[in-house]
């Protein structure tokens, strides 16, 4: 029971790291980026390829799993995404689905369609028994890393100059521009950072979520649920939504394996019926 809760939390935290970039791009630019998962996949493949082909140790690949998608995100934001901020949601959806398809096919072409397996370092393998609860070491590692990231994000948002500018820009880009804030720079930075985080999430999650070329499609619904349920005006909203989703998914698949896949959709429907504007969004 507690083990499942623990696994669920780890899973939820992963989802948060994967999806928080999307929440920010949505909140900030009102841009529906369905290709967010492609950046996560990029991070996952960076780690997998470095480990399996070049023998780089797991931990050493993580910074690159962040940096490569971040740079990719930055380049794409500056060249392509930027042009679409003012377009209709339909255009944004079409464009980002297009990117997903290209990414899926390109990864399939380059690395094959099979699951990428990564060999965790031995000190992260196995479970230990803490007060009768089975605790997976790797999941503890994920919780620690993601927890630290969440705290760091919260601090950046609330304590730094950049954070206050970002919040101002989310609140009202026009006003922010009027105050002399370089909104376009903020867009680019957050987009890159969000893509980087997704990449890191993809790398950390490769072991738990699996990693193959269809990753961005498989997890699209999870990302959408996180941002719609959690809302995009705070960091805590998506965070709580991720935890809820993670725990519900893990528990559902464990207790009722035959209908486990439906648990998250039921959750989604219940939330929609009760709180159409999102679970944690203040009603306006």
């Amino acid at each position: 029971m507690l083990t499942i809760l623990f696994d669920g939390i780890a899973y939820g935290m992963l989802l948060f790291v994967l999806a928080c970039g999307l929440a920010v791009t949505l909140g900030l630019m009102n841009f529906v980026n369905l290709a967010h998962g492609a950046f996560a996949m990029a991070g996952g493949y960076v780690t997998a390829v470095l480990m399996n082909r070049s023998g780089v140790p797991f931990l050493a690949t993580l910074p690159l799993a962040f940096i490569v998608p971040a740079i990719l995100g930055l380049v794409l934001e500056r060249t392509l995404y930027k042009q679409l901020y003012t377009r209709s949601h339909l255009d944004q959806v079409l464009f980002s689905i297009g990117l997903v398809f290209m990414a899926v096919a390109a990864v399939d072409y380059s690395f094959g369609s099979q699951q990428q397996l990564i060999q965790l370092p031995t000190w992260l393998q196995g479970r230990i028994d803490v007060l009768g609860v089975q605790i997976g070491l790797y999941r503890s590692f994920i919780i620690v890393i993601c927890g630290a990231l969440v705290v760091a994000l919260q601090l950046i948002l609330t304590r730094t100059r950049f954070g206050s500018r970002l919040r101002a820009a989310v609140d009202d880009p026009r006003v922010a521009r009027g105050l002399g804030i370089n909104v376009s720079l903020i867009f680019a930075t957050t987009f890159a950072f969000g893509s980087g985080l997704a990449g890191l999430g993809g790398a950390l999650g490769a072991e738990i979520l699996g990693l193959d070329p269809t990753f961005p499609l498989k997890f699209m619904i999870y990302f959408l649920i996180v941002v719609t349920v959690g809302g995009t005006t705070t960091i805590t909203g998506p965070f709580l939504a991720s935890l809820l989703l993670g725990i519900a998914d893990v528990a559902g698949k464990y207790y009722v394996p035959s209908v486990g896949a439906f648990v998250i959709y039921t959750l989604m429907i219940v939330v929609l019926v009760l709180r159409p504007q999102g679970l944690f969004e203040r009603a306006r």
Partner: peptide, 28 residues
């Protein structure tokens, strides 16, 4: 009734979700 409840984003989520649920049902 679910689709029309929310923003564009909600619509995307619900429509995608409905198709996935159906796919899963058909699979099982």
């Amino acid at each position: 009734f679910l689709v029309l409840r929310g923003s564009d984003l909600t619509k995307l989520m619900v429509t995608l979700g409905v198709a996935l649920v159906l796919g899963e049902i058909a699979n099982q």
